[in-house]
């Protein structure tokens, strides 16, 4: 009797449990990143929330439980209008960079014949990342300024007599600078999507008598939408949060939301207000991620 029980016992323990091992593996992979994001994102956000509910009196932080700061984000000038303006600049940047990026991505995906050339052009898209953002933005000043290359060139050709000041120190120049800086992100994103298009699809369309324009409009353009969306989300977000371009090439009133936050911290010492703006933008960010996930899912073509 005992011997039978013992053998049964041994058989049980000699088999490891797959379910238990699976749980342990998940734990092993998930816990380090989860701990990281908890410590460096969730806890700081909670700190932000705590700060935003208090207020500052005579340069000292007074804790509290007031939603005043959130109300102020939406009612007191200039917060809401600056957020809207930043979003507008972000949107323009996203639209312009998609338009600028598309031909290059298209060329890379369909017209480059050798792998070597493809590698070279791919490299040429990435390399501008390495040239300092600041120096590049400053180089635009060298080109567009009233004593800049463009004006001097146009004057010497007799096209204009006075330096044109239209290119610099306004919202449009901020749009253009940001477009220039962030276009490579859009190129890579659109290219990745176009590269997925099977060659046979184009051949089938041509075989059915479609011309180049029709192939583009009816097949390639719809398929490329998720790539354009993904690129637009990235360029929008990067441009929305920028604070360098307004300082370097923007006009006197072209502050963006990041500049406002910096001023609240560095000049006004109004931490609670800055925290409230931060939380509003974090919520908007989460919304944007959900929306983009939904949009990319909806527009994605399955092959």
């Amino acid at each position: 009797m005992t011997t039978i029980e013992q053998t049964v016992e041994i058989k049980r323990t000699s088999i490891r449990s797959a379910r238990a091992i699976e749980r342990r593996r998940l734990f092993l992979w998930l816990v380090p990143p989860l701990a990281w994001f908890t410590i460096f994102m969730l806890i700081p956000y909670a700190t932000l929330l705590y700060t935003s509910l208090g207020h500052v009196d005579d340069m000292r932080f007074i804790p509290g439980l007031s939603l005043d700061n959130f109300v102020r984000v939406f009612t007191v000038d200039p917060y809401l209008s600056v957020i809207i303006k930043s979003a507008r600049i972000g949107l323009m940047t996203a639209v312009f960079s998609s338009i600028v990026a598309y031909p290059l991505a298209f060329y890379l995906a369909f017209h480059v014949r050798t792998q070597r050339l493809k590698f070279l052009i791919y490299l040429l898209v990435i390399v501008p990342w390495w040239a300092s953002y600041l120096v590049k933005a400053y180089a635009w000043k060298t080109i567009l300024g009233s004593g800049g290359i463009l004006n001097v060139g146009m004057q010497s050709l007799g096209l204009v007599h006075e330096p044109v000041r239209l290119f610099l120190y306004n919202e449009f120049s901020v749009d253009m600078t940001l477009t220039y800086i962030f276009t490579p992100f859009a190129v890579l994103s659109i290219y990745a999507q176009l590269e997925r298009v099977p060659t046979s699809l184009i051949e089938a369309a041509r075989n059915l008598g479609a011309d180049g324009w029709m192939i583009f409009r009816r097949i390639i353009l719809p398929i490329s939408v998720p790539g354009v969306v993904a690129g637009a989300i990235i360029t929008f977000s990067l441009a929305f949060g920028d604070f360098v371009a307004p300082v370097l090439v923007g006009g006197p009133d072209s502050v963006m939301i990041s500049n406002v936050v910096i001023n609240l911290l560095g000049v006004a010492f109004d931490w609670p207000m800055a925290a409230a703006i931060g939380l509003v933008i974090i919520s908007l960010g989460l919304l944007l991620i959900s929306a983009s996930g939904w949009l990319e899912e909806r527009t994605q073509t399955r092959f």
Binding site: K11, S17, A18, R19, I21
Partner: peptide
């Protein structure tokens, strides 16, 4: 005759 329902694939 031995129950291997929950035995890991590796084993």
């Amino acid at each position: 005759g031995q129950d291997i329902t929950d035995q890991p694939v590796t084993d």
